[in-house]
């Protein structure tokens, strides 16, 4: 009798743990790029070059990876609450970094060299980086 009770109790406990874990995973907030481990270090120019020369290859190398990109700021755009920093690539193209909220204080200026960490999502007109944070502007 006690053994049977024990088994039922253990079963119930396991169910509770499973449900709890499921609930936790379901509601888990998105891990920000800033908290994630950096997968690749690269210069903005080289990143742009790799995407424009072989997009497919670059997609498998960089898309959905956290990258640290170093480059020269060519434009800063503020639209409503969103800020985007454009790093020089080649010609009109560049690396477009959407800055994560809370980074407004330490924005670089146009012409400065900057190191930005973010999630690479592919190439549109420019190489896209989202959820970006500024690591240093030196």
């Amino acid at each position: 009798m006690t053994r049977r009770k024990l088994i039922i109790l253990a079963g119930a406990l396991l169910c509770l743990i499973a449900a709890g874990t499921g609930y936790y995973l379901y509601n888990k907030p998105r891990t920000s790029a800033a908290e994630s481990h950096t997968d690749k270090h690269i210069s903005a120019q080289q990143l742009y070059e790799e995407f424009s020369s072989n997009e497919q290859q670059a997609n498998s190398n960089y898309v959905n990876k956290v990258v640290e990109v170093k480059g020269t700021v060519t434009d800063i755009q503020k639209t409503g609450a969103s800020i985007s920093v454009l790093l020089a690539g080649q010609g009109n193209g560049g690396v477009n970094c959407s800055i994560a909220p809370g980074e407004e204080e330490q924005l670089p200026k146009i012409g400065e060299s900057v190191l930005i960490k973010g999630l690479c999502t592919g190439m549109l007109m420019d190489v896209s980086i989202v959820d970006a944070t500024i690591i240093n502007n030196k």
């Binding site: 907030p29 998105r30 999502t121 592919g122 549109l124 989202v130």
Partner: peptide
């Protein structure tokens, strides 16, 4: 035109 991966959600899953 837009990249689907540029959509950011509050929840990871």
């Amino acid at each position: 035109t837009l990249l689907q991966r540029n959509f950011l959600f509050p929840k990871e899953l």
